[in-house]
Amino acid sequence: MIAAPDAPTPTVPILELRGVDAGYNGIGAIWDVDLAVAPGEIFALVGPNGAGKSTLISVAACLHPATSGDVLLGGQIVNGTAPRELVRRGVCVVPEGRSVFPNLTVQENLLLVTHAGVSVAEVEALAYERFPVLGTRRKQLAGTLSGGEQQMLALARSVAVDPAVLLVDELSMGLAPLVVAELYAFIAELASGGATVILVEQFARTVLGLAENAAVMSNGRIVRTGKPADVEDALEAAYLGEL
């Protein structure tokens, strides 16, 4: 859906932030953020709690306004676009915490995916094919699913929009390692199918092995960008402080 006839060449980042500042009630939360994510890659954004990662995600998805700077999707400036417009263009945010509607059934949760402009039959078929366990729980309330299954339901949204830009905040939080591995396998598969994935993680080492590029955030700024191996040494100072 991003690919129009005059499609951006592969060198154009699919998602880009240029000099973005943002905050709440006039109090800054992130400053001077530059970020470029190439199409089809898995990008890891890591940093301790409170570093501004979630704010960055909200700004990138136009859920929260930037006080200055630009957000670009496929080379086009999209600042101030309505979130529902971005959803239709393939941007899919999975916010922190279980991002499902707990008092709706699995099926009803998937019904809401149709806001992205796809048919309900298509969504259900793709979701149940990729996550068979969801197919067995159609009538169950989402709130009664296990943590892993809830994340699967949240991620199932991304299979319906293709190619997607998927922004996932704290995917692994509170989940068992085996479940995390399964979800990451799905992410890798999505990326190999052409989707772009931005993984925001507090637990840096969990995600760095998977990503092609990474950025470390601390106190509202990006302090290091590069290959996962290159950002390793910035982690400890960012998390546990220097004496």
Binding site: P83, V87, S99, L104, L112, H115, A116
Partner: peptide, 14 residues
Amino acid sequence: RAVVDNRDLLVIYG
């Protein structure tokens, strides 16, 4: 019902 559950999330769903 989704609005009751989580108004902001519905925006994210479009």
